[in-house]
């Protein structure tokens, strides 16, 4: 197995609101290997974005707070780093691409300014040099006329162009890990394809690991090496992309895959929905958080939290159905 770049252990992030404590992450364990693209998939509110933000410690207090766990990167626990050192990692070793490119750029500065800013910050370059680098990065992401784009303000560019610029900005300091939080959700389909192509290409040229967060299993299939399926603050299944489609194991994963209109009917007979609603994370169900909606739930599911069970090579599930398998 390749080297671990970043290792998350028992990460618990809570949001302290007026109505109660939202237990958004309920002990996440995840390793990200060097050079791989790993996807996190799940419904809205399952904790994908919180995981991403927790990694670069951008959970805003109040109300959010990382209460437990460790995130090891380059041999250091990011959660214990002083803020000053964390700031040296952000945008430099770990950078991030956000969902809405329209809102993610500051409307009052030019694209070039904003890219050059991060270059000046981390690479200690002069403004002129940084600006040149920024144009290089824009060119690198396939933007035609990068000089013009660099001088443009965000409102003067299209969503696709902005997302390319965002990628250019994220990659400008050659990060080891790129976190992409639903990078294409706000874009239309043709642009989406272009952006995904771009990201795929970049991976091969830069060698960065990518943590791709999405609710779209199609994108996962296209982009990722491995995938983690999240439900209500837990990762419930972790597998290579191939095996998750071939052999979805967790009942939630099965439900998720069956919810995709497809001609393949190996696992499910008809286009299905998962009954019930996403649980309230202030009072999450005890035991396995999925059990109230699970058609295979057993008594113990509501009492104990399942551990990890191996169902195949690199394929792990957190469900009592597979208790016989090897423990992770």
């Amino acid at each position: 197995m390749a080297d671990v770049l970043l290792s998350i252990k028992g990460l618990k992030t809570n949001f302290y609101t007026y109505t109660g404590v939202v237990k958004a992450l309920d002990g996440i364990d995840l390793d990200i290997y060097k050079g791989e693209t790993i996807g996190l998939v799940g419904e809205t509110g399952c904790g994908k974005s919180v995981t991403a933000l927790s990694i670069i410690r951008l959970i805003q207090w109040p109300p959010g707070k990382i209460d437990e766990g460790s995130i090891t990167f380059d041999g250091k626990d990011l959660l214990k780093l002083p803020l000053r050192d964390m700031q040296k990692i952000r945008g430099n070793n770990i950078s991030m691409i956000f969902q809405e490119p329209m809102n993610a750029f500051n409307p009052v500065y030019t694209i070039g300014d904003q890219i050059a800013e991060v270059i000046m910050l981390h690479q200690k370059k002069k403004k002129k040099e940084a600006w040149q680098d920024a144009i290089e990065m824009l060119k690198f992401t396939g933007i035609p006329a990068p000089e013009r784009v660099a001088k443009s303000y965000p409102h003067e560019l299209s969503g696709g162009m902005l997302q390319r610029s965002m990628i250019a900005m994220a990659l400008s300091c050659k990060p080891k890990l790129l976190i992409a939080d639903e990078p294409t959700t706000a874009l239309d389909v043709t642009i989406e394809a272009q952006i995904l192509d771009l990201m795929k290409g970049l991976k091969t040229t830069t060698g960065a690991s990518i943590l791709l967060i999405t609710h779209d299993l199609g994108i996962i299939a296209e982009m990722c090496d491995r995938v983690g399926v999240m439900y209500a603050g837990n990762i419930v299944e972790l597998a290579d992309v191939g095996s998750i489609y071939k052999k979805p194991s967790h009942p939630y994963t099965v439900g998720l895959i069956c919810a995709i209109p497809t001609l393949d009917t190996k696992h499910c007979n008809r286009l299905a929905t998962i009954p019930g609603n996403v649980p309230n994370l202030i009072y999450p169900p005890p035991g396995c958080r999925f059990h109230p909606r699970c058609n295979k739930a057993m008594d113990r599911c509501s009492k104990e939290k399942p551990g990890w069970y191996k169902v195949g090579e690199g394929h792990y599930v957190s469900c009592f159905l597979y208790e016989g398998g090897d423990k992770k």
């Binding site: 670069i56 000053r84 040296k88 952000r90 945008g91 430099n92 956000f98 993610a104 500051n106 910050l121």
Partner: peptide, 26 residues
């Protein structure tokens, strides 16, 4: 609370720069 403030922080900018450069002008 705007997204671009989160972006600015994600870039590794210090809080002072985030507030005096990115937030203030807006």
């Amino acid at each position: 609370t705007q997204d671009f403030i989160r972006t600015a922080r994600a870039k590794g900018l210090s809080e002072r720069k985030v507030i005096l450069k990115h937030a203030l002008r807006n």
